[in-house]
């Protein structure tokens, strides 16, 4: 006991100031992409060719990047000699709709708040059940980290629970392997309604690197109605937190405006 107290004092208070203050992400962090068609060379498709997942397309000279297929490898930005594709350090990537993940010049994904009824139910207390369905344990690890004292998910009334019976929503990671499909659907069926579905990570949204594997689905979207998509490989904990808080309408007004 006497040894614990000084160590406790030395380790100090470490909960981050988010969401009052913006987090500082590493310089090399690859977040929200910015597309500038003015810099595109006519007929150039080097960014399209660089992506193995067809995440980036160029239609009539206008590029579009689907964050649901993107693994944020930066390959398209590296392939573009003209700087028309760049990745910023902006961690706010989540969307309530699948279509909202497609970034076009001057656009960004945004998280609409739940409707009034659901916000009243879940806004101050959201219990989530996580199911890993072929996740590589990176998405899982960075969801686990939300419960550490740095992010301290509990202070927002959000908690990961053990039983689907206690859950208001399910957080799915992984492309949904054939072998996990029935267990995932059983878990979903065991949850009381209304219930939310959150697809976290490139695999759960679009299959990630496993897109097209005969052993997996290409994400949870074909099996369950998704309420929140959180891109990333894996999503940064702040990306997850931003998506969850945005959905619950818990972000400070100033933050919501700055995202516009």
């Amino acid at each position: 006991m006497l040894k614990i107290i000084p160590e406790r004092l030395r380790q100090g208070h470490r909960t981050g100031p988010y969401p009052k203050k913006d987090p500082v992400l590493p310089e090399r962090f690859q977040g929200l992409p910015v597309l500038d068609p003015a810099l595109c060379r006519e007929g150039c498709r080097s960014c399209v060719q660089a992506c193995p997942y067809d995440a980036i397309t160029v239609d009539a000279g206008t590029p579009a990047l689907d964050l649901g297929k993107c693994t944020f490898c930066g390959g398209c930005a590296a392939a573009c000699e003209d700087g028309a594709v760049t990745f910023t350090r902006d961690w706010r990537l989540a969307s309530r709709t699948r279509e909202g993940l497609v970034v076009r010049p001057g656009e960004r994904p945004r998280v609409e708040a739940l409707d009034r009824r659901l916000k009243k139910m879940f806004g101050r207390s959201l219990k989530l059940r996580q199911v890993s369905a072929g996740g590589c344990n990176a998405c899982e690890a960075d969801l686990n980290v939300l419960s550490t004292l740095v992010f301290d998910l509990g202070r927002f009334g959000i908690q990961f629970v053990a039983s689907p019976r206690h859950a208001d929503g399910i957080v799915v990671t992984g492309p949904v392997t054939a072998h996990m499909q029935s267990a995932l659907l059983d878990t979903w069926a065991a949850m009381p309604q209304p219930r939310l579905v959150i697809a976290s990570g490139a695999c759960a949204i679009g299959g990630g690197p496993f897109r097209g594997s005969p052993e997996t689905n290409s994400g949870v979207g074909d099996l369950l109605p998704v309420d929140l998509y959180i891109p990333g490989c894996p999503p940064h904990p702040y990306t997850v937190l931003d998506g969850l808080l945005g959905m619950l309408d818990r972000l400070p007004a100033q933050r919501r405006r700055s995202a516009d």
Binding site: E7, Q11, R14, L25, P26, E27, R28, F29, Q30, T71, F72, C73, G74, A138, A141, D142, V145, S147, T148, L149, V150, C233, P234, H236
Partner: peptide, 25 residues
């Protein structure tokens, strides 16, 4: 509590190196 946080500190160091906490790329 300490180690849960410190683990993340190491991941953040990896992210300083390559931008990703798990060393992708």
């Amino acid at each position: 509590a300490f180690c849960g946080r410190i683990r993340g500190d190491y991941l953040n160091v990896t992210a300083e190196l390559c931008g990703n906490r798990f060393g992708r790329g």
